[in-house]
Design a binder for these strands. Structure first.
Lengths: 349, 349
DNA sequence: TTGTACGCGTTATCAA
DNA sequence: TTGATAACGCGTACAA
């Protein structure tokens, strides 16, 4: 009943060649005469041969599989970049075994162990739970994405420039004071650069500014409450100034926008808002939100290039491990929409 | 330089047992004496053994890998359900090779071929491009999710009930007329049920209703234009009636809400809106949108159960293929928020 | 309870 | 240009 798969042995028997020759047909076709190529090609069709990569892998060690560990796919940023990464299959031919971490270190270690058991050729880590030092110890090509990356290669957005861009647009849109609201992030994660960029731009341009480092809660409802409170405070403090607010992400920017909209029925010219991420909510908001977008497609491609560089090195007879991890930085894109735009430019409504 | 992996042979040599015994340590530990178990356990640690699933698979055929083909991860619905599916790893121990289709049939066929080359045990198909008849022909356990499923097992939401729930809530919230806006979908895709459910509820309850089957465009900007036009028409037609509008998804519902909000600065009591999907935008809107949510977690689990049932059957000595494909239907959840709620209930603002 | 011998389907090595 | 043979690492009859 079990239909056995057709193997090289069957093709060999059918054509009268050896298994070796059949193998060569796939891996170095030009070493056979054209006629013999045709013979084998025909046999493959007639017997309906289907390739078996596992056997191939066992023999030569190349799985063409890359492992990915992502915190979740619920947040748009992650699903977006994963989408781009797995779409590189067309270009680079690597397949992806995907694990969704749950923030638990031991669980994610288990994932890695499992991935190693399948002889994956490399790992892409978007999760933040395992320190890069440990990642490096697995002795496998790794690329960290937008996370702490001291000991491994990485790709990240130029968050500092993002901060500059945001501050700059707010100023151009006529703000007297600009405020950045963010969580009190650790200095070694890329997001910290946003705060730095924001500050540096304001300081070197003598712009009145303020950075508010505060937790806005861990779910949407908490976010709403906290942002409402925050806005109430800001209204009192800066009632006489055109106020630019750079929120840490689009979700928060949108909540702020909604708070204001519910109060005023519109966004008063007194307020300018910037988000970060260019996630769908920034377009879908009552009023399209100006934001900083990561070049997710570029990042995905960089990730694969940095990974492939490492994986290819390992395939050489005398691999030379990298002396220092490579860190790629991708420029973010300023996206002007309706909540902040240069005062003398026309803008859609 | 190449550090060879430790194999059963090494463990065997070290402990003085045979490879077979080492193998048994993993697959049937109780067949060894406790002391010998300990001996091997220790050797494994000392030599730092790492399991090699590929070799195992080549020997016994069980990859514990399931292939997934999804249209994209950009849309929240897909990333959400994929997230839940891959999270079942904890429960069922299957790993997932993920491909993102691009709507091209040949490309997706190539994906399937690749998946088969890795001896995957089953496939989960969310993409709509390949007809179920062809999927069935691959002679591999398959589960289709929320798509045409005539010839393969499937899991889908009870769209009909979703339509009923939406219409019902709109009526309860005081509408004189209820309108359903949807694309002119084919009768064999689950989404068609929504239209049916909506109609049936209205007819059997003598509710004035209308179904508008129209294309709203293929991108956000087109959507906005079309929905704006649509709303203008509806305003003229039903100016004297409390109008309930059930949009085909939350994104469209949100756009409609925004159109209304920009015009009135609020949602006039004259209008009630329902979305579908419970996607993030429905919560993040200026006004939380009432919607119909799919029980994505339940669906993910059902998917795996239906798949595992088929995969387990194949592992038996005398597998009995299913006579008829199994179709699981999951009840949707009515989510009352602020754009439609029973008139005599209190509601948050 | 443990071991021997072979198979899984391919690639690599060496020889012809 | 082609072939024979030995890996790759593990599971599984079958034997002891």
């Amino acid at each position: 009943m079990e239909k056995k798969n057709v193997t090289f042995a069957d093709i060999a028997k059918y054509t009268g060649f050896s298994k070796t020759t059949v193998s060569r047909y796939f891996n170095d076709p030009d070493s056979l005469t054209v006629e013999n190529q045709d013979k084998i090609a025909e046999a493959l069709k007639i017997l309906d041969y289907k390739e078996n990569k596992l056997a191939k892998v066992l023999a030569n060690g190349k799985t063409e599989i890359v492992g990915i560990i992502v915190p979740n796919l619920y947040m748009h940023y992650y699903s977006d970049i994963i989408n781009h990464i797995i779409s590189t299959y067309e270009k680079y031919n690597y397949k992806f075994l995907l694990f969704s971490g749950n923030g638990n270190v031991d669980t994610e270690r288990k994932y890695i162990k499992e991935l190693l058991a399948y002889n994956i050729e490399g790992m892409i880590i978007l999760s933040h739970t395992i320190p890069s030092e440990e990642l490096a110890s697995y002795d496998l090509p790794v690329v960290a994405v937008e996370r702490e990356d001291k000991h491994v290669c990485s790709v990240k957005t130029d968050n500092c420039m993002g901060g500059v861009q945001a501050a700059s647009l707010l100023v151009k849109s006529g703000c007297d004071i600009v405020i950045h609201v963010n969580a009190d992030v650790s200095t070694d994660v890329p997001a910290y650069g946003r705060i730095q960029g924001f500050k540096e731009f304001c300081e070197s341009n003598n712009v009145e500014h303020r950075v508010i480092l505060t937790e806005l809660g861990n779910n949407f409802d908490e976010n709403c409450r906290e942002i409402e409170k925050l806005f109430a405070e800001l209204e009192e403090l800066y009632s006489d100034k055109v106020t630019g607010i750079f929120m840490s992400n689009d979700t928060h920017a949108n909540i702020l926008l909604n708070v204001i909209f519910r109060k005023y029925g519109k966004l008063p010219p007194k307020y300018k808002i910037m988000g970060f991420d260019d996630s769908p909510v920034s377009r879908e908001a009552v009023m399209p939100i100006s934001t900083i977008g990561q070049q997710v497609d570029v990042m995905a491609d960089e990730v694969m290039q940095v990974l492939i560089m490492q994986m290819d090195e390992r395939k050489k007879r005398r691999p030379q491990p990298l002396k220092e991890p490579v860190h790629k930085v991708v420029t973010p894109i300023l996206i002007q929409r309706d909540t902040a735009y240069p005062i003398n430019s026309s803008q859609s409504m």
